[in-house]
Design a protein around this nucleic acid. Structure first.
Length: 609
DNA sequence: GCTACGAGCGCC
DNA sequence: AAAGGGCGCTCGTAGC
């Protein structure tokens, strides 16, 4: 018994892994995980189970379910898939109804938390330096279990399946204690959200799809080479830059266009000398936009379940700041997935995609957006209590900034700016742009575009230079923070740089090196890094933890959340629900961020907006 | 035929 | 010395 007390893992946890049939057409990319397991071709031909006293690999039907102890829990690598397969097998009676585990745990999410590598292969390589052979997976494309048996590959396949579960169990046992409880809860919440999905207004979606299709057809007509074939009989792609180049040179242009990007000043300059090409470029841009939108809308359309809901994709810890990201993990090609975090914010070509996301009957949406969460976190991180105190008194943050740094001493800046006051408006916009855009070491040139985007502020380069310089001069705590982070990283050259966050976790920058500038490894990429960027990462990470803790609070209060988009939470609650409850749960300052004034904008929504 | 990568564009 | 950041998806092209 004394040994058991020393276990730093739960012996009731067993690792599971299914092997399921797939081919080039029938896969997650084309059907989504839910559609895949409900497809007639669905065939979970193998399951491996590994844990205390059990190592099984074989058909699910013959698995030793009776040997699993009461209250056993399942560890899987990618719960977004495995947790759909399991109940589907129960429905199909290849797994007994009463065999369900008491809980689930996802080692993919654990790996994301630990090392930023999501696939089992990459996680094991990163954490143990061992290469897991994934050859069998490719081999099995388009092959059934009996194909493998006939080909004499059964044993190899079994070994491969067993290996995955062994590694999964090892990840769980070795690292589970490094995964904080709250993060495990967030992993669970994320799964619940994706499985729950969102109700879709199908009529609206259908008519919108028709509109976009029409616009797409119209755009095709403006692309001269559309539908043509090259010498080899291959279709010339509508967005082919080579075709565009050829067309331009054949039609009196001396040079090819520098890009086809909408709004690119270089393109604009080129077009002013080649006006006759303008309609072609425009058609390419319209085709590109409508095509992408159409794909997205049709994917949603195709994935609507019989109950009228669409199960979306959202990844726990998709970003290295551990923010959620869109997409899914199954398969290497990140295609055919719908990212709910970048849905167009307004109508495009007669389709308002967000309007198609509606509450289930008897429910309403609550959209809860944190106001200026990042600047507030940054002020807290650098210890700018003065500004935070002004905000705590009820001052709008941009106004607080203006009073502190821009010499504003008039009345309510926001109210005056809203009324179009000629003196207040530029100051308000300048403050907004500076607060949102200048905190991360942004230079003057970049600040012009940031200011435009964040505060609709149009400025010249000298003005941008002045605002940025002013920001740095009046915010020495922030510039010092940049330097502190950068110096910390410089002291870590040759090793990993760990930044301890105020919450329960750290950020890790692996393998810091100097190649001209500072570089390090983030996920599987080598990136350039400097103080301003690190500051941005840390601020994002802290804001993420704030929203993460809020999500857990909402969940514990029984409030159904659908998804999060960085600083906003979409809740689905009964029609008579009191929105104040959501607000109160969200603005509660975390213990580890004492004194931070949080604010959320809450709105009832008849659709997602 | 498959993979990798950049361009372009959508979001916060 | 100076440098906003974080994502995902589609398409086209290049390279193996």
């Amino acid at each position: 018994m004394s040994n058991l007390n020393k276990l730093n893992y739960d012996p009731l946890v067993y690792a599971l892994d299914f092997e399921t049939y797939y081919d080039s057409e029938y896969g997650i990319s084309n059907y989504g995980a839910w559609g895949y397991v409900h497809h007639p071709k669905f065939d979970a031909y193998l399951i491996s189970i590994v844990g205390d006293g059990i190592e099984y690999v074989g058909p699910p039907k013959e698995a030793p379910w009776h040997l699993l102890p009461a209250g056993w829990k399942a560890a899987v690598h990618n719960q977004g898939f495995e947790r759909l397969v399991f109940p589907r097998c129960q429905e199909l009676r290849t797994i007994p109804k009463d065999a369900a585990p008491a809980g689930w745990l996802c080692t993919l999410d654990l790996s994301a938390y630990l090392c930023r590598h999501r696939s089992l292969h990459d996680a094991v390589l990163s954490l143990y330096g061992v290469e897991v052979d994934k050859g069998m997976r490719d081999y099995m494309r388009g092959k059934t279990w009996s194909d493998a048996v006939t080909a004499g590959k059964a044993e190899e396949l079994k070994k491969y399946a067993l290996d995955d579960s062994r590694w999964c169990l090892k990840l769980y046992r070795d690292f589970n204690t490094s995964w904080p409880q709250i993060e495990q809860e967030l992993s669970e919440i994320t799964f619940q959200e994706t499985a729950r999905g969102v109700a879709i207004n199908e009529k609206l979606l259908d008519s919108g799809i028709q509109n976009v299709q029409n616009a797409n057809d119209e755009a095709k007509k403006g692309i001269p080479w559309f539908g043509e074939e090259d010498e080899k009989g291959k279709e010339v792609k509508p967005l082919s830059v080579l075709a565009l180049k050829k067309f331009c040179l054949e039609n009196g242009c001396e040079t090819k266009p520098p890009s086809t990007e909408d709004g690119d000043p270089l393109l604009e300059a080129w077009l002013s000398n080649n006006e006759h090409i303008r309609p072609v470029i425009k058609a390419m841009q319209t085709y590109r936009s409508t095509n992408a939108l159409l794909k997205k809308a049709c994917t949603i359309r195709a994935r609507i379940r019989p109950d009228g809901t669409f199960p979306h994709d959202l990844k726990y810890g998709g970003a290295h700041t551990l923010r959620w990201s869109g997409g899914w993990d199954e398969g290497r090609a990140e295609s055919g997935s719908v990212n709910v975090q970048n849905l167009p914010g307004s109508e495009m070509y007669g389709l308002h995609l967000r309007k198609c996301f509606v509450p289930r009957p008897g429910f309403k949406f609550i959209g809860a957006d944190y106001s200026q969460i990042e600047p507030r976190c940054l002020w807290w991180l650098v210890g700018d209590w003065e500004t935070l105190a002004l905000i705590k008194q009820g001052l709008n943050p941009y106004e607080a900034y203006s009073r502190k740094n821009l010499g504003w001493d008039g009345g309510s800046l926001k109210a005056l700016a809203k009324a179009g006051d000629a003196k207040a408006l530029p100051i308000y916009k300048t403050a907004k742009a500076a607060v949102l855009g200048a905190g991360y070491g942004c230079g003057a040139e970049k600040f012009i575009t940031v200011a435009k985007q964040m505060a609709d502020l149009n400025i010249t380069l000298p003005e941008a230079e002045r605002i940025v310089a002013e920001f740095r001069r009046t915010n020495p705590k922030i510039t010092k923070f940049w330097k502190t982070l950068e110096n910390g990283m410089r002291r870590s050259i040759g090793e990993d740089y760990l930044i301890e966050l105020p919450s329960w976790r750290s950020m890790r920058y692996r393998n810091v090196k100097v190649f001209g500038g500072l570089t390090c490894q983030v996920g599987d990429k080598i990136v350039k890094t400097w103080g301003g960027k690190l500051c941005e990462n840390v601020t994002q990470a802290v804001a993420r933890d704030v929203i993460g803790e809020a999500l857990v609070r909402l969940e514990k209060a029984g409030i159904r959340t659908l998804f999060t988009v960085h600083d906003e939470v979409i809740c689905e609650v009964p029609l008579d629900f009191d929105n104040k409850i959501v607000e109160q749960l969200m603005i509660e300052a975390p213990d580890w961020l004492p004194g931070i004034p949080l604010e959320v904008e809450i709105k009832d929504m008849e659709y997602y907006k």
